[in-house]
Computed example of a mutant assay.
Amino acid sequence: MTKRCAVLASLLCVLCLQGCTITPWVKPYERESLADPIMQFSRDPLSSKHFEHVHDVREAARGATGVEGGGCGCN
């Protein structure tokens, strides 16, 4: 029974991943509208970048937020 479940699970994974390879999600002519500033998460990217830096320094952790730099935060 477990071999049958493993085969079924692997077949399901292959079928799910196959849908990602057929066509690209974003067409080249659609990238212009996605690069519009209205598509940004924050209205003021400089202040949000500073807030993320302060948060990273206080928490002593760096995540996948795109914040450059590091150190102890003594500046």
Score class of each variant (00 low, 15 high):
45 P>A: 03
64 A>N: 12
74 C>V: 15
29 Y>T: 10
46 L>V: 13
32 E>S: 12
39 M>I: 05
48 S>N: 03
59 E>Y: 12
70 G>F: 09
63 G>R: 13
1 M>I: 09
13 C>A: 08
75 N>Y: 10
72 C>K: 15
11 L>Y: 00
37 P>H: 05
19 G>N: 08
9 A>Q: 05
50 H>N: 05
61 A>R: 14
35 A>C: 14
6 A>Y: 02
74 C>R: 07
46 L>C: 13
6 A>R: 03
44 D>S: 05
70 G>W: 02
49 K>T: 10
35 A>E: 15
64 A>I: 13
72 C>P: 02
46 L>T: 04
47 S>F: 04
27 K>M: 08
27 K>D: 08
12 L>A: 11
56 D>F: 06
7 V>K: 00
19 G>A: 14
51 F>A: 15
39 M>S: 06
18 Q>W: 05
26 V>T: 15
24 P>R: 07
48 S>G: 01
55 H>L: 15
55 H>A: 10
11 L>C: 02
5 C>R: 01
12 L>K: 01
48 S>F: 01
75 N>L: 11
21 T>D: 03
12 L>P: 00
42 S>Q: 05
11 L>N: 01
72 C>Q: 09
59 E>Q: 14
3 K>R: 12
73 G>L: 06
10 S>P: 03
52 E>N: 10
56 D>E: 15
21 T>G: 13
49 K>R: 12
65 T>F: 11
3 K>G: 02
14 V>S: 00
14 V>L: 02
14 V>R: 00
57 V>A: 06
37 P>F: 04
22 I>D: 08
20 C>W: 13
23 T>I: 10
26 V>A: 14
19 G>Q: 12
32 E>F: 02
45 P>I: 07
26 V>E: 13
11 L>G: 06
40 Q>G: 07
50 H>Q: 11
29 Y>A: 12
6 A>G: 04
27 K>G: 11
69 G>P: 09
37 P>T: 08
25 W>Q: 10
47 S>E: 14
73 G>Q: 06
17 L>T: 09
63 G>M: 07
17 L>N: 11
26 V>Y: 07
12 L>I: 05
3 K>I: 04
28 P>E: 02
